[in-house]
Amino acid sequence: MTLRISMPGLNLKNPVMPASGCFGFGKEYSQFYDLNELGAIIIKAATKEPRYGNPTPRVAETASGMLNAIGLQNPGVQGIIEEELPFLQQFSTPVIANVAGSTIEEYVYVAKSFNETNGVQALELNISCPNVKEGGVQFGTDLQLAKEVTYKVKEVSRHPVYVKLSPNVTNIVEMARGVVDAGADGLSMINTLTGMQINLKMKRPIIANKTGGLSGPAIKPIAIRMIYEVKQAVDVPIIGMGGIETAEDVLEFLLVGANAVAVGTANFRNPLVCSEIIKELPHVLEMYGFSSVEEAIGKGHTHG
């Protein structure tokens, strides 16, 4: 049984990685298990300057999921390179940096900054954060902007670029085709869906930002459907995510065409979830008749 998978810039020992924003920069979860076990690590979003983020409360629990509106809090790309990446370099695990911004110039600046470090192997272009007033999801829901930011970042980055798509669109295939045409090396999907939850006692939204991004098992069927559709339309690798909690969930993502997967919200409930999924994955693949991860990719499409 081999779990190995290769994608542009990434030779992964297995297809499982923590999703951006759900794993910080690795330090905290390294207390629970050896980060060498992971296929890769997608670190928390980087912007040009340090960002404070949104007021609190920033999270709310929902049925089978949660809302968050952190607002891209981070120490800025320079802070990340200097303070956070050195810790991760002790591991053999590839690092994918999540690049965010309010303007195309900011995305370009951040992407360029990561050219200067050996601590990053690929970029995830975050055009889908629903929790910031400027930029973010605006780029992920406007086809022309999505193409433009992808093109401009590809122009300057020495790293492969995986564009993180927003599910908050009418036509996900059109967005996927657009960013692939603009040069995306791969896709990462899906980001959270914009939602809201009301506190009955206070008679107002629980989250201070009012809206937040919905994640967790509640959104898994949407992610599965969108990856299924996109896989039929484009020919680049996909990092699939949205509500993954088990090795069976991973197989489901592989079957619809994901080449690798990211685990997000589940880390909060179970800090060991990625490690446990990686250990369980060979058994699940075998149980369903596969002898490698590679073999399972896209197999959910073969029955018409």
């Binding site: 910080g24 905290e28 979860y29 207390q31 609190t56 409360p57």
Partner: peptide, 13 residues
């Protein structure tokens, strides 16, 4: 209100 409770998610600042 906390997310991870261990310092990774920046929910409770």
């Amino acid at each position: 209100r906390m997310g991870c409770g261990v310092g990774t998610c920046y929910a409770c600042i």
